[in-house]
């Protein structure tokens, strides 16, 4: 499993019977119970679920920041053994380096890779423009609003040109309006720069608006309850041609939203019992 097969058309990310148990096997807490999930190339998958369902653990495993007790986590047919710039992560708390300017934060991954200064300049320039950060290149993170800080973090992740983008509630710390703007920007960004994305969120609306597929998870033990296809609906209802607030008003959208909500509600009931 270590050697990558060249002409692979397989999934970008594959979780195979992934379990995570804390404590000993007998009385331990089962954070994830034999989870199977594959994410195709350039697919946008959103994971929703109550706290404690293991969605963040799943994402951290793909990032190489956490490891399963049993089962395999494969990224492009390669067993994940640790973090790497082929899988960039956007964190809820932005996780920018306060001591680096906007430009140096965005260029950090390239610098780590040993890229030439001219290349770093060129790439950071591109993302500064794309994320509308012009004029703030030399600012430090704390001088920016939350929305701008998260745009810097997203730019930093895109700048390393990863195969896979892992986003852990990236808009969770933002106010409602900024959140809407960022959701729309993310859709536009993924049109220009298609990437395989795993996106964790608490917001059902956000999941329905952004994702090709929604993975609904339940807890105790952490497991996948259902996987819902949104892509075919988005394409047939032409969501992509409308601004976000109008999409969120469409009957097709609200229907889908209600469906996911109900699933989540049922999961919570079944765990409570």
């Amino acid at each position: 499993m270590i050697s990558p097969s060249t002409a692979t058309s397989g999934p970008d990310i594959a979780f195979r019977k992934v379990s995570k148990v804390y404590g000993n096997a007998e009385g331990g807490f089962v954070a994830l119970d034999k989870v199977d999930l594959t994410v195709s190339r350039h697919e946008f998958v959103a994971i929703v679920g109550p706290s404690g369902c293991g969605k963040t653990t799943l994402m951290r495993m793909a990032a190489g920041l956490d490891f399963p007790t049993s089962g395999d986590v494969l990224v492009r047919d390669r067993q994940v053994e640790g973090p790497g710039p082929d899988r960039a992560v956007v964190f809820q708390q932005f996780a920018l380096m306060p001591w680096k300017t906007v430009r140096d934060n965005i260029g950090f991954g390239l610098k780590c890779r040993g890229a030439a200064p001219s290349e770093i300049k060129q790439v950071t320039d591109r993302y500064i423009t794309m994320m509308r950060l012009q004029g703030h290149e030399s600012a430090f993170p704390h001088q920016l609003s939350g929305g701008m800080q998260q745009r810097v973090a997203i730019a930093r992740s895109y700048a390393v040109d990863p195969d896979v983008l892992l986003m852990d509630e990236p808009f969770g710390a933002l106010d409602a309006q900024t959140r809407l703007v960022m959701q729309e920007e993310l859709v536009q960004l993924s049109r220009v720069n298609p990437r395989t994305v795993v996106f964790i969120t608490h917001s059902v609306e956000e999941a329905v608006f952004l994702a090709d597929r929604i993975v609904v998870m339940g807890r105790n033990p952490g497991r996948i309850v259902e996987i819902i296809d949104v892509k075919s609906l988005r394409l047939s209802e032409r969501w992509d041609e409308l601004p976000i607030e109008e999409v969120m008003d469409l009957e097709s959208f609200t229907h889908m939203r209600t469906r996911v909500w109900k699933l989540l509600k049922d999961t919570k009931r079944s765990t409570a019992a």
Partner: peptide, 22 residues
């Protein structure tokens, strides 16, 4: 901050870069 360390790691920082830059 652990998260900043993780963020540097997932963007490709080596151990010496983690020490120097984080």
């Amino acid at each position: 901050d652990r998260t900043i360390l993780s963020a540097a790691e997932v963007h490709g920082a080596s151990r010496s870069q983690l020490v120097r830059d984080v």
